[in-house]
């Protein structure tokens, strides 16, 4: 199967119903996208498919063949991606860091659709991304900072 990941074509030999998450991590070797729940409940596996935030753990490979997949490793290719990562660094957001790839991917997707989100819009767009370390308030500030940058 042909996958377009971060602008590079990958030929992936895997079953069409394999979730994208495992193809990225175990076959392509891009481990920045994380496994947290496998059931679309935590957002750790968030990637972009044609620019849309997508939970890779419940996305079969067959549904993304030939579409544009962006992972945390490729998000800096866009100006918005770089801006969000810079805001994350400025706010020193991560603690353990495990959820942060998914948080950043969700934040970039939010800002792509709504460059100036309200606090309520940020909360609701980010509500699917769990953080056990409690970094939510700094995530919120980082999104505000990126929106104002």
């Amino acid at each position: 199967m042909k996958l377009d990941i971060n602008g590079t074509a990958h030929e992936v030999d895997a079953a069409p119903d394999m979730p994208l998450l495992w193809a990225l991590r175990d076959i392509v070797g891009l481990t920045g996208t994380k496994f947290g729940c496998g059931a679309s409940l935590c957002g750790a596996c968030t990637v972009h498919v044609d620019g849309q935030a997508t939970r890779a753990c419940v996305t079969p490979l067959a549904s993304v063949a030939g579409r544009r997949i962006t992972t945390i490793e490729g998000v800096a290719a866009s100006e918005l991606g770089r801006k969000v990562q810079a805001a994350w660094i400025a706010e020193d957001v991560p603690q353990c860091g495990y959820c942060q790839s998914g948080q950043i991917m969700s934040a970039v997707s939010l800002l792509a659709q709504k460059p100036h989100p309200s606090d309520a819009e940020i909360r609701s767009a980010m509500n699917g991304n769990l953080c056990r370390c409690g970094t939510y308030n700094r995530i919120h500030q980082a999104i505000r900072r990126a929106a104002e940058a």
Partner: peptide, 21 residues
């Protein structure tokens, strides 16, 4: 002072146990 592990965690390159290959 800011944390030393932030950039790696923001870029997705920080290596957790599950990322060992």
């Amino acid at each position: 002072v800011p944390r030393l592990d932030t950039r790696a965690k923001v870029e997705g390159s920080a290596e957790f146990g599950l990322d060992v290959r």
